[in-house]
């Protein structure tokens, strides 16, 4: 009798796990024309899993075809240079941003500064970054950002004109963040198989021209069709050891809305020299 019960129970368990019909992999999502989202990547040259995360981020950028822009924040944790490093990517703005976005570990990334269900501003699992991108991309575009860069080779000064135009009304204070980053920096990156000496670092955050939450550009919101300008300038330090090359540098601009939990509403990125 007891054996029968065990056999019956076992049979029920096996039957219960009959084959399930597979869910098809979702196809590419429909991205509203002009919608651009911002990824702020928390990374570091001494962060072993960050090498793979950077590769995943790069893949996301390639597949997004301009709908996603990013910079990499080499702040405090695991950001100290490797023994063979030529560069030290750490800077005060990156440190401040890392503390603002803070997470238990790296790699991690923030997607338009939206809070997850656990209250965190970042997603720590690179394997889930594409899902976070998709969630943001399907939202309607509420603004458009145009950046114009004028670079003076003699003085190495770049003048940046940013125009924010709302597509629909955005309530509450609106802030503009402008950042400078640099790509194609060949320097060591820690990885599970040891240091990758010729790792190509992309979109390394070099300087914020505003506060991390942005300079106020509209204190009482933007109505549909309204435009606001922002003007900034930055003098690029002298080239040294393959760093600070204007052709490799990018300007990123995005707006945040206080009444929408400080979430990024729209972003844009161009090269200093197009």
């Amino acid at each position: 009798m007891k054996n029968s019960i065990i056999y019956l129970f076992g049979l029920l368990l096996v039957l219960y796990s009959c084959n399930e019909i597979e869910t098809p992999i979702p196809g590419p999502i429909e991205v509203p024309d002009g919608r651009v989202i911002m990824i702020e990547e928390l990374t570091g040259v001494s962060c072993t899993p960050c090498a793979a995360a950077s590769a995943i981020l790069n893949d996301i950028l390639i597949n997004a075809d301009g709908a996603v822009v990013a910079y990499g924040i080499h702040g405090i944790f695991q950001s100290e240079p490797r023994t063979e490093s030529k560069y030290d990517f750490r800077n005060p703005d990156a440190e401040e941003l890392e503390l603002f976005l803070r997470e238990f570990g790296k790699p991690a990334a923030s997607f338009n500064r939206t809070e997850s269900s656990t209250g965190s501003l970042v997603e720590p699992q690179p394997a889930s970054w594409q899902a976070s991108v998709d969630q943001e991309l399907v939202k309607p575009q509420v603004a458009d950002i145009v950046i114009i860069s004028t670079y003076d080779e003699a003085t190495r000064r770049v003048d940046i004109d940013v125009t924010v135009r709302s597509i629909e009304s955005i309530p509450g204070p609106i802030n503009l963040v402008v950042a400078i980053s640099e790509s194609n920096l060949i320097d060591p990156q820690s990885s599970p198989s040891g240091d990758i000496l010729d790792f190509k670092h992309k979109h390394v955050l070099k300087k914020l021209l505003t506060s991390i939450t942005g300079d106020p550009i509209a204190s009482s919101g933007l109505s549909s069709g309204e435009s606001v300008p922002g003007t900034y300038s930055y003098t690029i330090p002298e080239e040294f050891n393959g760093e600070w090359i204007p052709e490799n540098m990018e300007i990123t601009a995005f707006i945040t809305a206080d009444d929408r939990n400080g979430e990024i509403q729209q972003a844009a990125q161009i090269h200093v020299i197009e």
Binding site: T23, I25, P26, G27, P28, I29, D59, N63, A127, S128, W129, Q130, A131, V133, D134, Q135
Partner: peptide, 11 residues
């Protein structure tokens, strides 16, 4: 959750 994993392996 299934869709999110699907997004990750889509590419």
């Amino acid at each position: 959750a299934v869709n999110q994993i699907g997004s990750s392996i889509r590419n």
